[in-house]
Write a protein that binds this DNA or RNA. Structure first.
Lengths: 254, 254
DNA sequence: CGCTCAATTGAGGAGTATCAATGATTGTGG
DNA sequence: CCACAATCATTGATACTCCTCAATTGAGCG
């Protein structure tokens, strides 16, 4: 079994086959917005809540296929896709591209977050979006420094997922390993648990392989290559990054 | 440049080099918990908020290296890592494993979410965690069906990131393509925008390649192979999945 | 001292990338 | 309606990255 497939998405899919139709009838005139259809497929909304979502969505905006959607175009920071497909992609300086996620009708795009994660949002088809910033603000938790910090913590976790997708999708084993080590070093530095060059790395090469999407043998050879190139010192449990700046540049560039 | 690297994480890292020390002095006795250090590296907390976080963290729990951490062990659903490393991994039925994310001290593990995403949480080292469920509940938004639906929407997006990491890390081009198509079909079904077999696929093979982490040429050949195997019909803009069940099984199994 | 697990090494092959053309389709202006 | 450009899809040939299988070495550890 492939556990990922059995989670919410699949269950919801069963529900969605019926629910949207019922809701559509109740509303007439083309039925509810895609966002409402999507929300009702997860949780049963009452009339008031449906009305709230419909009215909470702001102005509609059209983008031609190929257009890039930028948060600074308007004050909108969260939008729902009404029609068409959008792609959120990371661009590498050599032109390589990794589409990290696609957004289909009914789904959300957090432009502000995308921006912080370094993602460009592009219309893959003629695209229609509606502003949902107010809804997001109303539904997403408290204000204040503590809530902000907490959201940053959550967002940092999501950033790591995104960055890992780019690693796996577009970096070679060599660059992928560098980028992971640099990332782990940054994280331990932030927590005050590593010095400028050296850090703990309590992972077997097998665990590294399972994280990097490589075979254990190839991880071993990649680490050796990094050592031969003078970039790291490695012994089980501990790594020294010899040229952090150069390594960051390598991780960043390719 | 590699935009992903320039976001919050890097900026925060600059801050974190100094802040934790100051906070540590103010508190003495080993300093603040890793969670507080992490939060203060994102947003300046006042004394009251720091106290709130410290008291909001529940019982400490120890796990030996290699142990699996399950949400049903206790009522804890969100924990912070106090010491040691944990891995969140997806397991394929043939034994392959993809570590989707690592959790280091100061970072959060949402066990309930991990469970819904099909992830196993494993201690990579002797691990200490503290319950943060109450904090999470207090800080993460409103109650009610609408807020629940909204969170599901956000969580579904995260699920797609996780699933894509598994695709890129552990599936062949052939299986990866099947899995993506099945996933896209599920999403369009849920939105009521696809019939049982056929769906719109408004992506060029180049876009598919950039999403699947493959070359455009190889995407082309993979699609041809899928056609030859009678699994799909493909013409630009539209795909028919001929054996949805079998395809799902393929996507799930390998 | 014999286990066991992690790390290492070698040989060979499968899977993908790259380079370079060649069709096919669509939209555009004459 | 046609020539043209532009984009997308397809094909072939070749190179290389990375995997698999199979040993071997090294490092704790009861």
């Amino acid at each position: 079994m492939y556990p990922v497939l059995n989670a919410a998405e699949r269950n919801g899919a069963t529900i969605s086959a019926d629910l949207p139709l019922a809701v559509a009838k109740a509303h007439g005139l083309g039925g509810p917005s895609p966002l409402v259809r999507m929300l009702t497929s997860y949780a049963p909304l009452n009339e008031r809540e449906i009305a709230l979502v419909e009215s909470g969505q702001g102005d509609l905006q059209k983008h031609p296929a190929g257009a890039e959607i930028r948060p600074e175009d308007t004050s909108r920071r969260v939008v729902t896709v009404t029609a068409g497909w959008a792609a959120q992609s990371a661009l590498l300086e050599d032109g390589r591209r990794q589409i990290v996620a696609l957004a289909l009708p009914g789904e959300l795009i957090d432009l502000a977050r995308g921006r912080r994660l370094g993602l460009a949002v592009t219309a893959m088809t003629p695209l229609r979006t509606r502003d949902a910033t107010d809804l997001a603000l109303a539904l997403e938790g408290a204000h204040g420094a503590l809530a902000l910090g907490w959201r940053c913590l959550r967002e940092a976790a999501e950033l790591r997922l995104v960055r890992h997708i780019v690693r796996l999708g577009r970096l070679s084993a060599y660059d992928r390993t560098i980028d992971l080590l640099v990332g782990l070093h940054e994280r331990q530095r932030r927590a005050g648990m590593a010095d400028v060059q050296s850090m703990s790395l309590p992972l077997t090469q097998e665990a590294l392989a399972d994280h990097l999407g490589l075979s254990i043998v190839h991880v071993n050879r990649t680490l050796q290559q990094l050592r031969r190139d003078g970039l790291i010192t490695y012994r089980t449990g501990r790594v020294t990054l010899h040229h952090p700046e150069r390594l960051s540049a390598l991780a960043a560039g390719a």
